[in-house]
């Protein structure tokens, strides 16, 4: 349904998106996870035809977004980070206008507007001006706008940002409800969100894809091994065997060596902390223990940057002025 091939976007000298590729199958919900400024919005803007990539190509529903923009856009619904509402229109007027520019035939327009309002639960606000809507309603009207022409593909940029917990739950349910008929790409910087709504996750950081997997797959990867870095001053002696012999150690590898000082990577099961045992073993043999620290995988680093818990404060600070 969606195919992204080696997309790169540069602004002057900075590279916002660097060689990103992924696929989304029909009816799937794909989560785009990454810290703020990772390149999520840029990738989505390229997918929706808002801006062209510097390199690479993207197809939506079989149409290249750059060479056949009209066809691709007809099949795409897009909710940008801030819902693109016109403050002086009422919700109904606004949705009617969007239906018009998305090419909904005039005799179907009324029904489409009504059904989009019902699906997103904004019908009670139909004659209210967009400027008078609360944040939660603005987001939902934004969602109504995205589905109004019944597109095959939905692209949602941080659909739950700035909502209160109750609204977040409602919005997620709404998105899951849309999944059957639509192929959905949504971005978020909140870890539990992808686990709850998405079937597959693309983790992106500094413009690069770090991992593509199912939420379960990612979790098990994270719960895998922990690695320690140990530097030992023991001239002429290889400490590999000693370290290997310690309980809980699954693998030891020599990583660097200089003037009799050797560095080792020691892998162990995640739950067991074997630093004390290592220190004792090294010291008891009369060697110098110069360094002992945990090594992080890049995936884990990203996970530490993305929010692992949802807090109301976080939701508030995310609101753009």
């Amino acid at each position: 349904m969606i195919e992204v091939q080696n997309i790169t976007k540069r602004y002057g000298r900075t590279t916002a998106v660097d060689d990103v590729s992924f696929r989304v199958e029909r009816g799937e919900i794909l989560g785009f996870l990454g810290p703020n400024g990772a390149g999520k919005t840029t990738t989505m803007r390229i997918l929706t035809g808002y801006m062209p990539p510097t390199e690479g190509r993207a197809t939506v529903a079989g149409y290249d977004v750059f060479t056949h923009p009209i066809e691709a856009k007809q099949r795409t619904g897009y909710l940008p980070e801030t819902p693109p509402l016109y403050p002086d229109m009422t919700v109904r007027e606004y949705l009617d206008f969007v239906a018009r520019i998305k090419g909904v035939p005039s005799r179907e327009r009324r029904d489409r507007v009504t059904s989009a309002m019902q699906r997103t639960h904004v019908a009670d606000m139909a004659s209210r001006h967009c400027s008078k809507l609360s944040k939660g309603y603005r987001q939902r009207v934004g969602l109504a706008q995205a589905i109004i022409h019944n597109p095959e593909v939905l692209i949602l940029d941080e659909p739950t940002a700035g909502l209160d917990p109750k609204q977040i739950i409602e919005t997620r349910e709404l998105i899951r409800g849309l999944a059957g008929d639509h192929t959905i790409v949504l971005s978020t910087h909140i870890l539990p969100e992808v686990a709850q709504t998405c079937q597959r996750v693309v983790i992106i950081n500094r413009g690069r894809v770090v991992a593509i997997d199912t939420p379960e797959g990612l979790t098990s990867r994270l719960q895998g091994a922990a690695t320690l870095y140990v530097q030992v001053d023991a001239p002429g002696v290889d400490a590999t065997e000693t370290l290997q012999g310690l309980p809980g150690v699954s693998r030891v590898a020599l990583s660097d060596q200089r003037d009799g000082v050797r560095g080792y990577e020691v892998e162990s099961a995640r739950e067991t902390d074997i630093r004390r045992e290592i220190a004792r073993a090294v010291v008891s043999r009369g060697w110098g223990l110069l360094e002992l620290r945990p090594m992080r995988m890049s995936l884990e680093e990203i996970f530490l940057q993305v929010t692992t818990e949802e807090t109301p404060e976080e939701a508030v600070s995310e609101q753009r002025p």
Binding site: I70, K73, P84
Partner: peptide, 14 residues
């Protein structure tokens, strides 16, 4: 300024 340009430019309009 208001970001509605994103709506226009991602709609099937030239």
């Amino acid at each position: 300024r208001s970001g509605t340009i994103e709506l226009l430019l991602t709609s099937p309009l030239t």
